[in-house]
Amino acid sequence: MDTDLLRTFLEVNKTRHFGKAATNLYLTQSAVSFRIRQLEIKLGTPVFTRKRGDLRLTAAGERFVPYAENILQTWGRARQDVALTDSYQQQLTVGATSLIWELESSSDWLEHVQTVQPEWALRTESLNRQQISNALLEKLVDVVLTSEPPKLADLQQFRLTSFELVLVSSEPDQDMESIAELPLVYLDWGTRFGVEHSRIPSLQRTPVLHSHGCQPALKFLLSRGGVGFLPLSVAQYWIEAGELHLVKDSPSTASELFMVWLSSNDKNADIEELVTALSAS
């Protein structure tokens, strides 16, 4: 399978427009159309329905999206693995959600790994929570950083650190009753956080913004106003600057960051060696 066809397919799916996909890929629109036709010939089925002003995936196209993404991920890993030089003896592919990558502790962890294993090359991948288990099982990643380890039979985990989520408001002098009048920004940290959030009566309403990223949530609170949970490490600067305010008597939520991997991974011995080195440093 020509990887250019896959990249073109995914770009058209993202933009839902042949012209925009062509611009992003530095191609002509006719070249994009040709690549999509070639892909459909190889698959033996259409992947898009084409109506004036309305470009959509077919059912086959919907099913093909995760395969295209996985093939490109695997191909990218393969290219880096075979290109390793004498300076880098091993490559470690690390996956995490965008929320986790935005935590300062994730960046610190990458630097720590490079310090204790300077001969390793690192590759990062962004995943959604639904992809984590499959990415580990299919060996698309070697390690995942997560606050909610998946339930897999041979999962290994190592606690890296903890972090705190705090309830902040764009308005000063707010308490757990007065925030019921403010727009709600919901930062989606997963099932456990969702359960705890559902136990706070004054936050039980439709969010004006439901976000999977810290920065969109933060920018919305700063520009449009509202209330919501943010990592303390993200909110601290704006609290000190007087732009955000801790809600009085609000609960804080402690969470932990784990490094998880499967013992069936080919690199298990290397990962365990890494854990030992991280523990000792």
Results as ranks from 00 to 15, higher is better:
R199E: 12
T253D: 07
L152N: 08
H212S: 15
T253W: 11
Y26M: 08
D188W: 09
E104N: 11
F193M: 05
D2P: 11
L222R: 09
R205K: 15
F229R: 05
D270A: 14
S223Y: 12
S30A: 15
T45Q: 11
R50Q: 10
T45D: 01
P172C: 08
W120N: 03
S98F: 07
R16G: 06
L221D: 04
S106H: 08
S126Q: 13
R159K: 15
L274E: 01
G19C: 05
H212P: 02
S106D: 04
L84I: 10
V47W: 00
T161P: 01
T85F: 09
Y186K: 11
I179H: 06
R159P: 03
S263F: 05
L187E: 04
F64K: 00
G213Q: 15
Q89W: 10
L122C: 07
L127M: 13
T93K: 05
N13R: 13
K267V: 03
L218E: 02
L165K: 04
S87M: 13
L25T: 03
D175R: 09
P251S: 10
S263Q: 14
R79A: 10
E125T: 12
F163L: 07
S162T: 15
L99I: 12
E62N: 09
I100P: 00
T146S: 08
D154H: 12
L110D: 02
R224P: 01
Q80K: 13
W101F: 06
K51L: 12
G95Y: 01
E138F: 11
P216N: 09
L92K: 06
P66L: 13
H245V: 05
P149K: 08
L232N: 06
N70H: 05
A180W: 02
E240F: 06
K248Q: 11
H210M: 12
R77F: 08
P149S: 06
G76M: 01
L222I: 06
F9L: 00
G19H: 11
E196C: 08
W75S: 03
I36C: 00
L187K: 04
L145Q: 03
Y26L: 10
R50A: 03
S162C: 10
E272S: 12
Q157N: 10
E125I: 11
S133Y: 01
R79P: 00
L10Y: 05
R16D: 06
N70D: 09
A78C: 04
E273W: 06
L222H: 08
F9D: 00
Q80I: 10
L92C: 09
E119Y: 13
N70W: 01
E102A: 14
V227C: 07
L209Q: 07
L99A: 05
P216L: 07
N134C: 05
A153V: 12
L222P: 07
L39G: 02
I179F: 05
S107W: 12
K219D: 14
L10D: 05
K42S: 01
P66Q: 14
Y88Q: 14
N13W: 08
E125H: 08
Q73M: 06
V116Y: 06
V116A: 07
R123F: 04
D154N: 15
A83P: 02
A68Y: 00
